[in-house]
């Protein structure tokens, strides 16, 4: 029986560390898909996005739930396991939803020239990682890496603002890949 009390890490310190390493590899190696485990959140939240939330989101940060994921079950689960304050897109440190529901992404904080780290991280739910539609290059990529991105021009515009910009963790099932603002994207 799924309740808001279940689906968290059962061994938080160890599982959070493992999930973080998946996030770390994801953000360090853009486009490379990583396995991430430990969470069993209520649908439509994927296990991957659930684990990301448990690993990075807590009372010290704000979270925006896009309409695709703004359900009573997810609100209750997030309230119990993360305790993050739910806010509008403009105030969010983290945001969760499908690409369509999160947009327009221009609403999110991209940091300031003094503090480019004060930018939102978007946790993007994807139905599946399909055939690659983009070629990635930049820090973290030896030569090139291909990936299936939910949008291309918007992500190119995000990169153009470097060192400001948003960072993305794209989730599907129990997998995640990262797309930091530093990654250059070309359509295939």
């Amino acid at each position: 029986m799924q309740s808001e009390l279940s689906g968290g890490f059962t061994q938080a310190p160890q599982q959070a560390a493992q999930a973080f390493r998946a996030c770390l590899e994801a953000m360090a190696r853009p486009g490379q898909v990583q396995a991430i485990r430990g969470a069993a959140p209520p649908a439509p939240l994927s296990p991957a996005a659930g684990a990301v939330l448990l690993t990075l989101v807590d009372q010290a940060v704000t979270l925006h739930l896009a309409p695709s994921h703004d359900t009573p079950a997810i609100r209750a689960w997030v309230a119990f396991h993360c305790g993050a304050q739910l806010v509008d897109a403009e105030q969010a440190d983290f945001a969760l939803g499908t690409w369509a529901a999160l947009g327009p992404i221009e609403r999110f904080a991209i940091g300031t020239p003094d503090y480019p780290d004060r930018s939102a991280t978007l946790i993007v739910e994807m139905a599946a990682f399909g055939a690659a539609n983009a070629r990635l290059s930049g820090p973290g990529i030896a030569s090139v890496q291909e990936a299936d991105l939910p949008a291309i021009p918007a992500i190119q515009q995000n990169h153009a603002q470097f060192p400001l910009g948003l960072d993305f963790l794209l989730c599907s099932g129990a997998q995640v890949f990262g797309l930091p603002r530093s990654t250059k994207v070309e359509a295939l």
Binding site: A12, P13, Q14, A16, A17, F20, C23, L24, M27, A28, T55, L56, V57, D58, Q59, A60, V61, P116, D117, S119, T121, P139, G140, F162, P163, D167, P180, R181, S182
Partner: peptide, 24 residues
Amino acid sequence: NFAYLDEATKRMIRRAILKGLAVP
């Protein structure tokens, strides 16, 4: 706690590390 730091502190540090990777 595992690896000494409490989980909230680790989350704070982990968030900083990810932002650091995003802006090398």
